[in-house]
Each structure stands twice: as structure tokens, then as C-alpha cells.
């Protein structure tokens, strides 16, 4: 998994173009943030990487990703399974033997060791998203796709989740789709804005992630991103 992941080409749904001549490269072992207006096709890119783009006609070249891990805005926890069983969902649906000890370790990592036997509806939104993170970690994939994973959380929880996720996913190839310039500035090692006419790269800070919210380079990048996002296309 040291080859850069690359997607070049065009996509359409039922004959309606979603994006064309996109050229996106994910640097191995680093975080790429993808921003852009709503409906521009960010989730479609992510779904193509995940092999989930039913109904999307993709014309181009896409590196083979192997199996990936994915986390979205909704926690997608199964309400009938305990927190622990949700963390082990992957093994369950593949028919493998679930590794309980490892799953418990993941819960410790996200700070939910005491909640293993609860059902998801008994947790807060932030806690549920941490379970989703534990489930993602449990999959242990080199490539992790994140589609606005923190956008439903309150500001404080979001900041904590950003730090936790960055800590726990270091060394992996991460594609993070977000609408939040601050989030991109904190977590992006490469920051791209998707527009109908292609990708625009915005310089990311060089400091290691997760960066401090108040760091000078974060604030500067955040302002930069705002300007770019506001600019008429």
C-alpha cells in the first residue's frame, strides 16, 4: 500500500454528468481533505473508491483499493446489536470469528469501555459516533474513507473527535470529505477543493496533525479556504 491511489475520469448518473476529467491522487499514509459545494460530487468520489457507486457510470481509471474502511455522517450502528457487537460487525457479516478482546481494546481507545453492553439508542450522538470510529478501527484497513463524519456533532465534541480520529488513524491513507474549512485546516495534509471544472489544491500546513485549533498556520489555511470556497467559479 505504498502506491498513490489515483482516480482520473468522469462520472455520470442516468446520463447526467456528476464530474468530468477529475484527477485525484491520495498520498499514501496521509490525510487528504476534500471540500466543495454541496452536490458537486464529493460523496460520489468516495463511493467510487469504496466500490459502492451503484447507478454511477464511471469512465476513467481508478486504482485498485482493496478492502477499505468507511465512516459517514450517520453512525450507521445497528440498533439491535450491543455496542460491542457493533464494533465487531465486520467479522459478523463476513462470517469470521469475532475477536472480542481486540474489540474491547478499540472501545477503550475511544473511551467507551464502560458502554460495551449498551444498545446504541442508549448513547448520545457523540458517543455513537465514537462507536462508529471504533468499528472503523476494528476493520484495520490501510485506506479509510470518511464522509463528513463529524458534521452532526456539536462544536466541542467535534473538536475532540477530530483529535481522537487523527491520533488513531495515523499512518493510514485517509480521504476526508468535509464542509468545514477549520476541520480541513486541522487535519488535512493535502487539501483539495472540488469544483465543476476540476480540483483546486490549497496549500496545507506542514505541522503534524491533529493541529491545534488556534495555531497560526491553521487559522491562515482556514481563511484561505474560506476565500477559495467563496470565490465564484
Amino acid at each position: 500500500m505504498n502506491q498513490p491511489l489515483r482516480m482520473t475520469g468522469s462520472a455520470e448518473i442516468d446520463g447526467t454528468p456528476i464530474f468530468s476529467q477529475l484527477d485525484l491522487t491520495l498520498t499514501p499514509h496521509s490525510w487528504t481533505c476534500l471540500l466543495g459545494a454541496s452536490g458537486v460530487g464529493k460523496s460520489t468520489v468516495l463511493r467510487l473508491f469504496a466500490g459502492l457507486a451503484e447507478g454511477v457510470t464511471f469512465d476513467g481509471v481508478l486504482s485498485d483499493t482493496g478492502r477499505v474502511a468507511m465512516m459517514a455522517q450517520q453512525d450507521l450502528l445497528m440498533p439491535w446489536l450491543s455496542v460491542l457487537d457493533n464494533v465487531m460487525l465486520g467479522a459478523r457479516v463476513r462470517g469470521e470469528r469475532p475477536d472480542k478482546d481486540r474489540a474491547r481494546e478499540r472501545l477503550v481507545q475511544v473511551g467507551l469501555a464502560d458502554h460495551a453492553d449498551k444498545l446504541p439508542p442508549a448513547l448520545s450522538g457523540g458517543q455513537r459516533q465514537r462507536v462508529a470510529l471504533a468499528r472503523t478501527l476494528m476493520e484495520d484497513r490501510a485506506i479509510v474513507l470518511l464522509d463528513e463524519p463529524f458534521s452532526a456533532l456539536d462544536a466541542l465534541t467535534r473538536a475532540q473527535m477530530q483529535e481522537l480520529t487523527a491520533d488513531l488513524l495515523t499512518g493510514r491513507t485517509v480521504l476526508l470529505v468535509t464542509h468545514d474549512p477549520n476541520e480541513a485546516a486541522r487535519l488535512g495534509q493535502k487539501i483539495l477543493i472540488m469544483t465543476p471544472s476540476g480540483l483546486v489544491e490549497v496549500a496545507a500546513p506542514f505541522t503534524p496533525i491533529p493541529r491545534d485549533i488556534h495555531a497560526q498556520d491553521v487559522l491562515r489555511t482556514q481563511t484561505d479556504l474560506f476565500d477559495h470556497l467563496r470565490r465564484p467559479i
Partner: peptide
């Protein structure tokens, strides 16, 4: 949910 399970293999 189905998508998640598919991605999990």
C-alpha cells in the same frame, strides 16, 4: 447499512 456491510466484504 447495506453499503456499510458491502464495504466490509
Amino acid at each position: 447499512w447495506i453499503g456499510l456491510a458491502k464495504v466490509m466484504g
